[in-house]
Amino acid sequence: MTNTLEISNLSKSYKGFHLNNVSLNLPTGYIMGLIGPNGAGKTTIIKIIMNLVMKQAGSVKVFRMDHQAQEVAIKKRIGFVYDTPAFYAHLNLKQLKNVVAPFYENWDDTVFNDLVNRFNLPINKSLKKFSRGMTMKASIAIALSHHADFIIMDEPTSGLDPVVRREMLDFLRGIMQDENKSILFSSHVTSDIEQAADYITYVNDGRVVFSKTKDEVNEAYALVKGGNDLLDDDTKKSLIAVRSGDYGFEGLTADLKASKKIFGDKAVYDKASLEDIMFFHNLQLKNAHQ
């Protein structure tokens, strides 16, 4: 299995923010979802891949090429969708296409027209009159009309209503019928990732908490619930973080099997959603800072 994207030990510091030793691999033919709270470092990672922000340490390889040394060769094969599309608002979609198309050798008008029809986009309407959903669809149509092998999207579903959001995710899944394509997209909406991603990379506070297949995440993580009498210093250690109240506790485990051995049938085990996983990891982080 070859990797479309390989990031190792990537670091970058801003005032008050550190991206710390980020490593991840995205195998060709799969979708990776990048989740994390706002300000976790998702956009910085994406900007570094695109070489829009300079890294300070580490390496980034796209299609097994260095992202800086072979930037031009790489970018021809990337479709990039920004979170806030920077369009020339006074243009219409047709004019915008005419501006962008000449930059790509592989630009394909048939694909573009097909996407415009599929997304129901008006070709002659000024872009500044587009709704948020239409703007997003327009930037996707622009980004995907040159047969890109690697699609990078920063918050592609933000500000979209649930119906359009579904359409978008279905559309991404459709692209993946071609096993030579790969997609990296970031979102702070966990249901997007749960629906569309094959790999989940969770970033918090500038670090990768985990980067795993969705199945691995679903099988390893679980919520453990039980009476407070089950909790002592030892059993607590097996949980990532615990929230306990007057009537019992709830904690997150990253190793369901081990927890079952420790708590036995006195505790209840529930599926952990990505939201649960994020919440408890965040709680752990907060506890560590105290």
Binding site: Y30, R173, G174, M176, Q177, E179, A197, K214, D215
Partner: peptide, 17 residues
Amino acid sequence: IRKLAQELHISVITTKR
């Protein structure tokens, strides 16, 4: 596996498995 994953709205990794 890719067709089935798309139809069932699940990961390719799951259908592959």
